[in-house]
Write a protein that binds this DNA or RNA. Structure first.
Lengths: 229, 229
DNA sequence: CCAAATCGAGAGCGCCGATCTTTTTCTTGA
DNA sequence: TCAAGAAAAAGATCGGCGCTCTCGATTTGG
């Protein structure tokens, strides 16, 4: 499918890209709160109503930025996790990638992991993009499991409902992962983002600030919890 | 210090309370985004500029709501944790109180644990209020430790920096708590809020939704991690 | 009792998101 | 080639927002 595009369509895509670029710039500078279509229009040489030819509303523009942000962090994590290395090293690299991207792009982090901005919409497009990070983490654990190297500590029995959810999550990775491991990855996943969010939003200021040491330690404890070698 | 207050001061405090009440109502209804001073003014029978006699800016009003929200969740957690019960039961109750309050007041949760709203200020007033929840959790672990019942699993050595931070945190509870335990509480704390935040903001929709089972399991795993009996 | 402080009210500023109409520009098929 | 039609740009306009300033009315405390 060569996707024939005329000159007009090409210009249109450029315009969309330029609007998003400028919006991303303003986002990085002062957050989603103060991102205004009018300012974007001014900066891109459009009249204020012109932006609406490309994005039906401010929320739609923000949604586009959200999807891009999910993609950006996922890309970093997938790259970090893809290295040929021991499972625990890959796990550490994935977690470190999350933190590094978040610290480098705090406003984009806030956009996707902070409070949902409008009444929150979460269109289906964002779901797939959002799933890539946890899937990358799961893939590390799955590889360790397939190599027969997964050694979870004393296992707690799962209630049936949680076991079912764990099984469903495990199947997202292609199957083969024990339910319990999937559940523990879920817990480590929430721990990771809870910690990164707390760091970014200043909740660690009186206690674990700077958070470098806490982060590394937590990542290792979670790897222990999962049973990564 | 009897705090003599004249009639005028009394009326003023009533006015402040009424403004906050209406603001809280709007917050609960549609989030911090769409909380407007003008709407609050309309609803309280004031002219729009009148609110500024009581709050210098929208941010100042939001800050007042933030402090109140921290206080509200802390109250619930302290009450839950204060029960005369086994350490693990107290731990569970504290965590459950966090989740229950958060689900009952999602917009207030977003206000204090979501993306910082303005450029974020975090005035000193909020810090003390924010510390009460982690302190309540720490107190449970400290009680278990003092009863000689804390049995942490295989301990990982702490790097010096993290040990120092853990010691400082432990001292906030009055001392006596091992550094390692304080650090683990910190990790469990971030896990707890990461999980609750993910649940509220829809990040668990495709996987661990509903989150009840995951929550209970995670709370117990974190209690294990800390070594609570 | 009166000066000072406080208050409610109102007008106004500049910004915002969004909609509508009009004009210009570009594309394309007869 | 050129006119019809689609797309883009421009401009005016609407209601709402945060915030500031001024001006009488009211209350307070010395």
């Amino acid at each position: 499918m060569g996707e024939r595009v005329g000159a007009r369509e090409r210009i249109r895509r450029q315009m969309v890209a330029e609007i998003k670029r400028e919006a991303r710039r303003q986002l990085a500078e002062s957050g989603a709160q103060s991102l205004s279509l009018r300012a974007v229009a001014r900066e891109t040489g459009l009249v204020s109503s012109g932006v609406y030819r490309y994005f039906a509303s401010r929320d739609e523009l923000l949604t586009a930025l959200i999807i891009d942000a999910y993609g950006a962090v996922a890309e970093r994590v997938e790259e970090a996790v893809g290295a040929r290395a021991a499972p625990r090293e890959r796990w550490r690299a994935g977690c470190a990638a999350v933190r590094a991207w978040s610290r480098a792009n705090p406003h984009e982090y806030a956009l996707i992991y902070g409070s949902p901005v409008p009444g929150y919409a979460a269109p289906a497009d964002t779901v797939d993009a959002a799933a890539r990070v946890p899937l990358a983490l799961l893939s590390v654990v799955r590889a360790a499991h397939e190599a027969g190297e997964l050694r979870p500590p004393d296992v707690r029995a799962l209630p049936p409902e949680l076991a079912a959810q764990g099984r469903a999550v495990a199947e997202l990775t292609g199957g083969g992962l024990p339910e319990d491991a999937a559940v523990r990855v879920g817990i480590a996943w929430t721990q990771l983002f809870g910690m990164v969010g707390f760091e970014l939003f200043g909740h660690l200021v009186g206690s674990f600030d700077p958070a470098d040491a806490l982060f590394d330690h937590a990542v290792d404890l979670m790897a222990d919890l999962i049973g990564l070698p």
